[in-house]
Amino acid sequence: MHLLIAILSGVLFAAGVWLILRRSLARLVLGLILISHSASLVIFTSGGLQHAEPPLVEKGATALQTPFADPLPQALILTAIVISFGLFAFFLVLIKRAHQETGTDDIDAMSEVES
């Protein structure tokens, strides 16, 4: 399972890099999104993948049932997703405005237009 997820995150990263290297801005955003998923997967795996109980103390019990899942990686991923949601939403507005202003979504053409 670890291996599978490791390969998956590698593939996502590679695909993301490939998309980033295209000239189109829309693909650039998609590529960055894929890379952010790959990062989330790495964090997810780092907590250790296992069948475990939720890390909540049951009513009446005094300690956690073992084995319990590590809640931190999930909290981290959730935070990272929330933040990248904000950033990518903004980025989309940015490339849309850039497209409107310059009439191209090719980043090199964009720099030429202005100089």
């Binding site: 939403a89 903004f90 507005v93 940015l94």
Partner: peptide, 19 residues
């Protein structure tokens, strides 16, 4: 607030106030 700021900015083509 944040989501709708972005949504409106995407939806409103010609409103130059945004960005």
């Amino acid at each position: 607030g944040f989501t709708l700021t972005i949504v409106f900015a995407l939806a409103e083509h010609d409103e130059r106030e945004e960005y």
